[in-house]
């Protein structure tokens, strides 16, 4: 393959063509660097500003870091009104529980539909595909009313339990299972006397681990960043999650705040995701690509 391509390329590239290619390459790289700059600029600005004190920030625009990072970190971490360590802990508890539930039960549902023959198998599959596109926002009125009625406001259960039914995660698991899990393995386990649950937990889950890892990351990030539902359900200060605290900064009286601390709080809210992303970005990008190709 590679050889023929090289020959063809050499074939249709005359000298003029090579100059044209050079020009278009320069153009493409310029645009790419511009877009990359656009994506990184605000984060760079955020990091720089988190190293500057309030007085230094008032001096105006600057791209040179200063030495107040630890001071800002300390004042952000110990702030009386915005309890960010507590918020991060709350967000972490919710995000971890919902990503574990989402991946485990999606794999279980996918396994149920992939490996067993039952009467409503097709109907169940079609149904899940049909509800995949329905946004959760449209049922928020009933959701909130229901939580109020059952005293579930300021409770994390309504933020965690619904992730058991995650159609998108299910769909990804189902695709992955089709490509990697031969039914013979399940039958072999049966012959060896394993129960169906044992087969799933001890044989299928380990095989599905790559897919589970990818989807766990996506569910975790989605939950960590979720602002809409928690914002409507939670009003107790000690139960607030990170996005609610960040949103509250916007409504706070600005003149009272130390701007260096504000930048630091924003940085703290996104840093866990960014760190994880830097280490496994290739993995994540592959996951996005795989999730998008259907049928």
């Amino acid at each position: 393959m590679a050889n023929t391509q090289r020959i063809e390329r050499a074939d249709y590239l005359s000298k003029k063509g090579r100059v044209m290619l050079m020009i278009s390459r320069i153009f493409v790289y310029l645009i790419l660097f511009f877009l990359a700059f656009l994506c990184l600029f605000f984060f760079y600005l955020l990091i720089v500003n988190s190293t500057r004190s309030h007085a230094q920030l008032n001096e105006g625009f600057s791209l040179i870091p200063r030495g107040n990072f630890l001071k800002n970190l300390k004042s952000a971490w110990t702030d009386g009104t915005v309890n960010i360590p507590r918020g991060m802990l709350n967000s972490f508890i919710i995000a971890i529980s919902s990503s574990v539930l989402a991946t485990y039960f999606s794999a279980l549902t996918a396994f149920g539909i992939h490996c067993y023959d039952f009467r409503f198998k097709k109907a169940a599959f079609t149904f899940i595909l049909a509800i995949m596109m329905i946004p959760s926002q449209i049922s928020v009125v009933g959701f909130i009313k229901m939580c109020n009625t059952f005293g579930l406001t300021n409770n994390y259960l309504p933020l965690i339990l619904p992730s058991i039914a995650s159609p998108v995660v299910f769909f990804y698991m189902k695709q992955y299972m089709e490509s990697i899990l031969p039914l013979e393995i399940v039958e072999a386990a049966r012959v060896d006397g394993a129960s169906e649950f044992y087969t799933f937990n001890r044989i299928v889950i380990p095989i599905m681990m790559p897919a589970i890892a990818v989807q766990m990351i996506f569910s975790f990030v989605a939950s960590w960043n979720n602002f809409f539902l928690p914002g409507m359900l939670i009003d107790k200060p000690e139960r607030k999650t990170v996005p609610i605290m960040i949103a509250a900064l916007r409504s706070a009286d600005y003149k009272k705040f130390d701007m260096g601390e504000i930048y630091m709080l924003i940085l703290l809210s996104i840093i866990p995701v960014v760190i994880v992303y830097i280490f496994i970005s290739k993995f994540i990008i592959k996951g996005v690509a795989a999730g998008s190709v259907k049928g």
Partner: peptide, 24 residues
């Protein structure tokens, strides 16, 4: 077993999505 394995998904969907939609 097929039914048992897909049951949690459908119960959850029913309680946390379908009922709220109908209520809305």
């Amino acid at each position: 077993w097929g039914y048992i394995f897909i049951l949690p998904f459908f119960i959850t969907y029913f309680i946390w999505s379908f009922v709220p939609q109908v209520l809305t």
